[in-house]
Write a protein that binds this DNA or RNA. Structure first.
Lengths: 206, 206
DNA sequence: TCTAATAGCGTACACCTGTACGCTGAATGT
DNA sequence: ACATTCAGCGTACAGGTGTACGCTATTAGA
């Protein structure tokens, strides 16, 4: 009952996923990489691909899901680390940027397919970003006592800033990446300060 | 000296550009559209393509340039309209969103190739966004008396927000687009308020 | 008016693509 | 022990791709 068979299947499935990620990291966008080449790099015959995925698209969606999942887990870990003191903004953004550096290929896929390809791709990406926003929003409401409305506006803004900053890291070396990270921290603080000012403004009115 | 020959050449060149834009607006990313199909839609033989562009890439870069140029001109016009009174933020963002709605195909190309394809593509896109930021930054320094440093931070933030919001408009209808526009206006005001608060903070320190 | 330049065409070629089909050998369940 | 399942293979095919090459007809320039 070891499932020696299922184990092997899972192994080549992962080989396909890795192959796709490698070819992605090179230069080509996802849409320009071919079933045959992916299969070749994974070390199986082209036709065997279909034992694991219906399409290349199905493989792509898997990549998007995995990328989003990994990011969420990482950020949740980071948030726990914060509970023992430290700036949430700094730790979160540093974690995020490190993730982008470690998973450039899939993160690039995420951003690229956000505004292209098939509708299902776009929806999948939006879903991942929404997860990110929702967790941030809850934090702002529960820990910082923001209104739901203002928290929503704020988290959406921060998500836009952070994901864009992630995209800025693609071509650059580590030194430059640190500069971008510091800049992003300042930008998020700018937003936080704006939100704080807005909150006071609304309180005074009422 | 009418240049009857050059005129015809320019005409088919435009036909190629239009054909590419059409095929882009459909569903396919730029990398997945082919020289042959573009030539077919433009009504010329595949091999005649080379009389106008070395590559598909060269055509793509042309599209990026044209898109950026059109956007800049539009925003400059909008800014002139503002000089006779009106909210800069509102007018600029509404103009921007209208542009995205009218030029979805090329704007999508812009954002897509921002994080993919060849390096030259990415650089071209970055250049266009930098134009956008530079004009905004100058405005903040000259008209709003911000420090260069704070203006730079602010314009970069706003550019990230606005371009992301543009991407959010791709799939949606006009009603939804107006909602996004209003939201974006609020977000940019958030940043402006944060920058204002930061400026006061710095002034008090010195 | 005569010559050079050139936009566009048609043919041809080598290459790559997705996938239909049927087979094989090993793991599985009985 | 035996029958079933199924991951992976090889062959095959039709269709799409970029582009090299040489031709034609029209315009530009002398």
């Amino acid at each position: 009952m070891a499932g020696i068979r299922a184990k092997q299947k899972e192994k080549t499935r992962q080989a396909l996923i890795n192959a796709a990620m490698n070819q992605l990291s090179a230069e080509n966008g996802f849409s320009s990489l071919s079933l045959r080449e992916v299969a070749r790099e994974a070390g199986i015959a082209p036709t065997s691909f279909y034992r694991h995925f219906r399409d290349m698209d199905e493989l792509g969606l898997t990549l998007v899901d995995e990328c989003g999942l990994a990011l969420r887990q990482l950020l949740r870990q980071a948030r726990q680390r914060i509970e023992s003191g430290g700036s949430i903004i700094r730790v979160s953004i540093e974690t995020f940027m490190q993730f982008v550096a470690d998973n450039t290929a899939t993160f690039r896929l995420l951003l690229q397919e956000r505004s292209g390809r098939s509708r299902s791709f776009r929806l999948a990406v939006v879903r991942e970003i929404d997860h990110f926003k929702a967790e941030l929003e809850d934090y702002l409401v529960n820990e910082q006592s923001f209104t739901r409305e203002l928290a929503e506006l704020q988290s959406d803004t921060i998500a836009k800033i952070v994901f864009s900053a992630g995209a800025d890291c693609f071509d650059v070396d580590e030194e430059e990446r640190e500069i971008i990270t510091e800049k992003t921290i300042l930008q998020v603080r700018l937003v936080a300060r704006g939100a704080e000012a807005t909150r006071r403004l609304l309180k005074r009115e009422s």
